[in-house]
Design a protein around this nucleic acid. Structure first.
Lengths: 189, 189
DNA sequence: TCGCACATGTAACGTGTTACATGATTCA
DNA sequence: TGAATCATGTAACACGTTACATGTGCGA
């Protein structure tokens, strides 16, 4: 008896698009340009990625589009987020942080953080950052332990590469502590 | 007229496997465990990833295996790297660093660095690190500029997320400078 | 004898990559 | 008039994910 798994969950790219559309409607082309030019753009903005993703999001009923062809303008599909899209986005934002999110998908966590502004409560934001801090602190400790134990067995480059991991995670930890400050200091609830 | 592209280049995972096998023969299972347990393991060690990858590397003539079934031991395929495998690995290690390597694939650069020990010359290592430093420095500058220009338009979380990027890249830069020191201080040529 | 670690694989699926493809508008 | 930018899409391909599948050896 085979378990058939219907995979209709959005991908990270989908969430990134939802996060952008949350701020206001955009055309596929605009979305592509944002991914190509801004900092949060290691999500490839190639047409072969974006247009299928937009189709997917429409199929999932998370976005819809209107064709803008008003007088002498180029034909353009303007995509809007639907209430269900916002709901799905928010669910993603408040998902509890697991160890593996920190160790393997930290850029995803940053993407989540970047979209939180008006969508979740201050309590949820601080909970996110506190979890981030906890998991990061624990992971650094684990890496340090590893470093101390294996130091003798490792060659120079392996040792230095591990050192890089530790330093980068420490930078993330420092950042998160600052961010927690900034978020709690912020007046809005 | 269609251009048919024969895609027979190794993937990042393939290079990671080659890098491991460079140190000595391993079974598929061992490789999986390394990816699952060590720091350089956001490369999934699931069987559905590793075994096909090993097959691929054999097809590319970069590795070969011997079956070890000596007395009462479990059947096990021991994979060895071939000279051609080493050659391909080294070519990857010394590939010039482009801007996009730093902005989008920095973890790949660290993986490359981790495997360099006995495979390339000190000159090549320092060249790698100097390029790394240059591109990282430039990218940080670009991010800072972006930060200063867009600061007013961005909401708190976007601003903080961008800040994270800057801080993480700064940590990478500091690390690279230290690593350059460590590599040049190292006596072997 | 039960469960865990060791050990190797296959199949379905969906996504991202790359390349191809088309057409309008703007500006030098 | 030609190039660059705006704008949207499709098709082939291959990789990684997930789930399924099987079997051995060892220790409690």
């Amino acid at each position: 008896m085979k378990k058939i798994k219907l995979k209709n969950n959005p991908t990270v790219l989908d969430y990134a698009i939802l996060g952008l559309l949350q701020r206001g409607p955009l055309s596929g082309y605009r979305i592509r340009k944002i991914f190509e030019t801004t900092a949060l753009g290691h999500y490839s903005g190639s047409p072969g990625t974006i247009y299928p993703a937009l189709k997917r999001l429409q199929r999932l009923n998370l976005i819809h589009h209107m064709i803008r062809s008003n007088d002498s303008s180029r034909s353009q599909k303007l995509f809007h987020i639907k209430p269900k899209g916002t709901k799905v986005l928010v669910e993603w934002l408040v998902k509890p942080i697991e160890r593996e999110d920190v160790t393997k998908r930290i850029s995803q966590l940053l993407l989540r953080f970047a979209f939180m502004d008006n969508l979740i409560s201050k309590v949820q934001k601080t909970y996110f950052l506190k979890s981030f801090i906890k998991e990061t602190r624990d992971y650094i400790q684990q890496l340090e332990q590893n470093y101390n134990l294996e130091q003798e067995n490792m060659l120079l480059h392996g040792r230095l590469a591990l050192r890089n991991g530790i330093e980068v995670y420490k930078a993330n930890l420092r950042w998160a502590r600052n961010a927690l400050n900034a978020v709690t200091q912020n007046s809005k609830t």
